[in-house]
């Protein structure tokens, strides 16, 4: 009961001020690092290189270039190469109270082949930002 009364006494403006103060005490440090367990030989630019081989490159050509994929479809005609990069670090709070969190983004290239094993498409897929 007391808690409810106490909460009722807090004005929404005070909550907003507290929120703004917290945000002012925070900072964003941009980073461009690979996540520890991510593969590092595939980037968005790889999509362009792959697209140049549409109709001529084979499954073997792509595997020889990029290595084993992270995911293979059941029919073996769709390969997915995934990687995760740390976009930055979000730090909130100061002094003895605070928290630092990495913000990561998972990305992937989905490569599709026809029934003869020739490259049909290579599509870049960006994931959402994720707070680790």
């Amino acid at each position: 009961m007391k808690r409810v009364l106490l909460f009722n006494r807090v004005h929404p403006r005070q909550i907003a001020l507290l929120l703004i103060a917290s945000l002012l005490a925070s900072c964003w440090i941009p980073r461009n690092d690979w996540e520890l367990d991510s593969r590092r030989n595939v980037t968005p630019g790889t999509t362009t290189t792959l697209q140049e081989g549409v109709g001529t490159a084979t499954l073997a050509d792509v595997l020889l270039q990029l290595g084993e994929p992270d995911v293979v479809s059941e029919d073996g005609r769709r390969l997915t190469y995934q990687w995760t990069k740390i976009e930055g670090m979000f730090i909130i709070g100061a002094m003895y109270m605070g928290s630092a969190r990495d913000v990561t983004r998972a990305s992937a290239i989905e490569v599709t082949f026809d029934e003869r094993g020739y490259l049909v498409s290579a599509e870049l897929l960006y994931g959402k930002l994720h707070l680790d």
């Binding site: 593969r39 590092r40 030989n41 073997a60 595997l63 020889l64 270039q65 990029l66 290595g67 084993e68």
Partner: peptide, 24 residues
């Protein structure tokens, strides 16, 4: 993992092409 070794064989099972792809 440092590399992905890819080995491509012909119909007789003899190695045709291979590559040690650096993944890290």
């Amino acid at each position: 993992v440092r590399y992905s070794l890819v080995l491509v064989f012909d119909a007789k099972g003899t190695l045709q092409r291979h590559n040690l792809v650096s993944v890290r």
